[in-house]
């Protein structure tokens, strides 16, 4: 399968607001059935990229393709097979779940009223209350139910857990895993719930200041990043360790007394061993990192470089 045949393609995308470049030459693809987590701090450009990807905003440069279709020019056709849950639920505020279901049943192919109703019942969304009077979580559940009831081939979720409490967040993500695993749906998700997404995403892209810092499979990412803890005997040794660490291009280095903590993105066994040789006899602890820790190491100071 070539890149352009992928269900979701972002190719050299640039988005500008006046003179401000929000997305700068960004590219990534999501394969069939893959769950892609697009991560980044607020203002990193994720929502702008998604807005272009779903054909709602025109790119200044580059292109986005959904299921092989240009998402700006062929938005309507693409939306027949794509479901979108935006960052803020944009449901018409005067419309109840029942009315929404009736409307979507007339405009969306493959709409399942039973799925829609069943899901609403499961998550406890009042069917006749206007969307404007639902809680934030209920609105998000309603939006998600409206999207899933059409059984889209591609699902784009822009921070679907935003503003939800931890319980609802877990439920929503685990629900998604079950639903999507059953259907083989391709998913692009942006979220700040890194712990929640860690067990779901197949691939991770991290954006910072409008650019993609990294784009790789979750397992690879997690195996690559390590925290190294050095406990040298004296300050002179600690100085040697710090100098030697530079060869591993640590993302974060912290020294407390003679103890040195560092996060590195190229933590292969040989490299660490060589570091030990260079620094002298130093005790080194090597720990794996959670996705959230990797993200903080990469984006926390807004100064780290791409690995």
């Amino acid at each position: 399968m070539t890149t352009t045949d992928q269900p979701l393609v972002v190719d050299r995308l640039t988005v500008r607001y006046g003179k401000v470049t929000a997305v700068d030459d960004v590219s990534f693809t999501v394969g069939p059935g893959e769950v892609y987590a697009l991560l980044g701090r607020n203002g990193a450009g994720k929502s702008s990229a998604i807005s272009c990807l779903v054909g709602q905003r025109r790119a200044a440069a580059g292109e986005c393709r959904l299921l092989g279709m240009d998402s700006w020019r062929l938005r309507r056709r693409a939306m027949e097979r794509v479901g979108v849950v935006p960052e803020s639920p944009d449901l018409p505020p005067g419309t109840s779940a029942v009315e929404l279901g009736r409307f979507l049943g007339r405009v969306r192919r493959g709409w399942s009223a039973a799925d829609f109703g069943g899901r609403l019942e499961r998550v406890g969304v009042p069917p006749r209350l206007p969307a404007g009077r639902l809680s934030k979580g209920q609105r998000r559940q309603l939006a998600l139910a409206a999207v899933l009831a059409a059984a889209p081939e591609v699902l784009i979720l822009d921070d679907p857990t935003l503003g939800l409490d931890a319980v609802v967040r877990r439920e929503l993500l685990s629900e998604l895993v079950g639903e999507l695993a059953d259907r083989g749906t391709t998913v692009l998700i942006t979220t700040h719930d890194l712990t929640g997404i860690e067990g779901i995403a197949d691939r991770v892209g991290i954006m910072r200041r409008g650019r993609v810092l990294l784009d790789e499979p979750m397992t690879e990412l997690k195996s690559r990043f390590r925290r190294l803890r050095f406990m040298p005997a004296d300050g002179a040794t600690a100085d040697r360790v710090e100098r030697a660490l530079a060869s591993l291009e640590p993302l974060v280095t912290r020294r407390v007394g003679s103890q040195i903590d560092a996060v590195v993105g190229r933590a292969d066994r040989d490299g660490i061993a060589a570091l030990g040789e260079t620094a002298g006899r130093v005790e080194i602890e090597v720990e794996p990192l959670a996705l959230e820790e990797i993200f903080v190491a990469l984006c926390g100071d807004e100064g780290g470089g791409a690995s």
Binding site: S51, V54, G55, Q56, R75, R76, R77, M79, E80, G83, V84, P86, S88, D90, L91, P92, P93, L104, V107, R108, R109
Partner: peptide, 16 residues
């Protein structure tokens, strides 16, 4: 809808 960020709902549907 445009000002309050709700117009995207319509573009997210298969509507010309």
């Amino acid at each position: 809808d445009l000002a309050e960020g709700r117009i995207g709902f319509y573009y997210a549907q298969p509507l010309t």
